[in-house]
Amino acid sequence: MMRTDWRDHDWQLIHTIPQSPTLHMALDDVLTHEVGAGRRAPTLRIWEWAAPAVVIGRFQSLRNEVDTAAAQRHGIEVVRRVSGGGAMFIEPGNTITYSIYAPLSLIKDMSFQQAYAFMDAWVIEALGELGIKAWYQPLNDITSAGGKIAGAAQAHRGGAVLHHVTMAYDINAAKMLEVLRIGREKLSDKGTTSAAKRVDPLRSQTGLPREAVIARMIATFRRLRGLGDDSLLASELADAESLAQGKFASAAWLADVP
């Protein structure tokens, strides 16, 4: 396998109507697989959330991370994603989430640390255009002088890499701390945990509506990497809906790490 560059690929954008948390989990699974199999061109997908959610990492303990009674009380769905990393607290309109599905050739021979920064270099540039000096903070954060902006996670599947990122646009920290459990050991190294790291959301940093931030990000990706406008195939959506119901909504998957 030869190393490829961004411009060697015909990048496509998917940015559709709000979808449920389990469908988002399933779309990441299906689209990574489709790109790996060569049936879909490498794709940037911008997520729109239909409902609030806590998204826990592939290897996180459900009961250690989430106060499920508090989540239920607030009507927050708890889902497990396919990639590792930490828990995210999502409210529609408060986050900007995107996925990149790329052939593994794009990050061939890179260390994890290099691959994370490489996949998000365009976002660092877009943030700069919005007046935010941001940089990559290993292992998997995008940060700024004001605080953390985003967290990334990657998963490798059958010839493709899934790289997805959740950025804080706005945040309800009080509700987040009710729903996520923050352990003491987590605080021992860096002084804070992923979810509670001093977050400086994009709303206060840019003064722009969320839609304007997303539009800037898309424009920057388009200019740097090339980007066509695409939509989900009916078959991709059907596969994802079936996987959302069969796997990602199941108690067995959610409690796979109890």
Binding site: F59, Q60, S61, N64, S83, G84, G86, A87, A153, A155
Partner: peptide
């Protein structure tokens, strides 16, 4: 034995 955390592990069956 149950290992958990916010780390990254590939493939996930390695757990």
């Amino acid at each position: 034995v149950q290992l958990s955390g916010d780390f990254f592990l590939e493939p996930d069956s390695a757990l």
